[in-house]
Design a protein around this nucleic acid. Structure first.
Lengths: 330, 330
DNA sequence: CTGAAAGCGCTTACAG
DNA sequence: CTGAAAGCGCTTACAG
């Protein structure tokens, strides 16, 4: 059977193709009874406007790109879902690209995406600001969990929650804390380290800094040995995966949370809830992060002025933190 | 500055637009020196063919759709990555859609996707075969981890590995096994249950079946109580998430793996490796699954005849299985 | 190997 | 509120 287009519907109904087109793109411009006849006929024939043709005519693709640094990191699936949902509600599709934890590949990936989308959500990029801005060029883009001069963004600020976490540890008698730093090129890692450092300064609490580490389970595991040697009993890990790793490494050395040490993660990914005991961590409003990113992007695409947004993490106390042990090890 | 098209490049170089077009779409048809001049100029101007225009002319979008039932289930991120990588290698983009664990939404989502892609990878769908086939219509599609009459697919067969797991438990002295069944509408769940059931029949081993459960951590947790009451010491869970949940629930009841019970998961997702102790499970070649799906889809799109593919899981013994306890509880 | 021209299926400024 | 027509930027059958 012949492909159904605005022309075939128009002919069938004795109206012009323009009117059929308007019934879909600007329904308010079409008299309601005409519009209804058109919609009924379209429905009957299973018609949907050809996206390529529409795109060619309007210059819009109806697609946004979403670049994530590592889809297998449990932080990102919920973000992807939130972005996808928000985009879907606007009838725009999401072209997903995974940088496979390779920051240097990001500029190339952004460039490829840029040619086929109306806008870009770039989550937690690792590449340099300059490289990123260069490839983004004039394309509408919003950055998630990083601030880049000149690009709108939405970040999760965990400063307050991390300070609360540190307070929580101190109140439980932990007098020596350790910070497991995240990747050197991660903006979030820098911010988190800074928050903890500042807190320690203010409270004159001894803080051991370890890392930088990659945000991987194995890197957390590898940190267990030095951690034990450091004598710190309160541990703030860059993220949940690293917290999970360090707990695993510590368990192997016979050191257990919350009795021997207390461990706090960050993000509150699925993993944090499935561990036994469940992880004390900073809960990030990931859904909101994704939703706000799409809202912002929509505004940028529409040419409106936008303000970067900020959401906040909150401390969630679970099973991996508790009173400091009475005696020091060693 | 004016937008760069095949026309602007053609004018610049004193050739026809057709030739510029061919330099990109059918380079073999253009004399090499001409082609090189065109490419150099395009490069200089940052030109890339307009996808919408190309799509309108060819009827191809250069996009495939990927429908996953639940992106937050840790099985899918690695699959998404594999599909995305294989697609990227063919210069096709991936439009990701998440059904958010709602099987009844799948037909609608497929229908929406269908309008904007050249083909579809449908992963572990929950909707009925009839509904799925109806919405897929004539669109090239390949199904992952489910067989649907008339649609090509690539499945992971875990039969052998699950039998090996059951053997492993029996060899360790477990005389009563429990099977935690997965979702009722999950094809994989049915297959896995069947494999275990058949093994138990053949070996005259007592098998307690529990479920169906949703493939969620909490559902696994909720199963702990009945499991303990059943007296089974060897547990085969539908997937890793459920295994993880049941371990958590059991721990709360003072029952621990591998000393009191042995637990086997399925899939070998990230979670399985980050648990302490690490989970004995069936390792699925997820990357291969994704890669094969894209290969198959490419062939279908090209109009070639294809054969459904099958890959196999293998048993990976880790820390949650061991000798059956000497005395029965209760 | 190259060019002129038609066509892909929409949108939208313009005229009515 | 509706229609005729031009245009979006490619591809490709056809002719040379």
């Amino acid at each position: 059977m012949a492909r159904v287009t605005i022309y075939s519907i128009a002919r069938e109904l004795g109206v012009s193709a323009s009117t059929v087109s308007r019934a879909f793109s600007r329904p308010d411009l079409v008299r309601s009874d005409v519009r209804e006849r058109i919609m009924a006929e379209a429905d009957r024939l299973g018609y949907a406007p050809n996206r390529a043709a529409r795109g060619l005519a309007t210059g819009r693709t109806g697609l946004i790109g979403l670049l994530v640094p590592d889809i297998t990191n449990p932080f990102f699936p919920p973000l992807v879902r939130a972005v996808e949902q928000a985009a879907g509600a606007r009838d725009v599709g999401v072209l997903l690209v995974d940088a496979e934890a390779n920051g240097r590949a990001e500029p190339r990936l952004v460039r490829q995406l840029a040619a086929q989308v109306d806008g870009l959500v770039v989550a937690s990029p690792r590449a340099s600001s300059a490289a990123l801005k260069d490839v983004v060029g004039g394309l509408p883009a919003v950055v998630v969990n990083r601030t880049i001069q000149g690009l709108p963004g939405v970040v999760c600020d965990n400063t307050g929650a991390l300070r609360a976490a540190a307070d929580h540890l101190r109140e439980h008698g932990h007098t020596k804390l350790a910070l497991l730093r995240g990747p050197a090129d991660s903006w979030a890692a820098g911010r988190r380290a800074q928050a903890v450092r500042r807190w320690a300064d203010e409270h004159e609490v001894e803080l051991v800094e370890l890392g930088p580490f990659e945000a991987q389970f194995e890197d957390g595991r590898a940190a267990a040995r030095v951690l034990v040697d450091s004598g710190a009993t309160g541990i703030l890990a860059f993220d949940d995966l690293m917290a999970c790793g360090v707990l695993s490494g510590l368990a192997e050395l016979g050191v257990h949370a919350p009795v021997d040490v207390s461990v706090v993660g960050c993000d509150d990914v699925l993993l944090a809830r499935t561990m036994t005991p469940a992880l004390t961590t900073v809960t990030a409003p990931i859904d909101e992060l994704g939703r706000r990113a799409v809202e912002l992007l929509e505004q940028v695409v529409a040419g409106e002025a936008v303000r970067s947004a900020r959401v906040e993490g909150v401390l969630t106390v679970r099973g991996t933190t508790g009173p400091a042990p009475r005696r020091r090890r060693g």
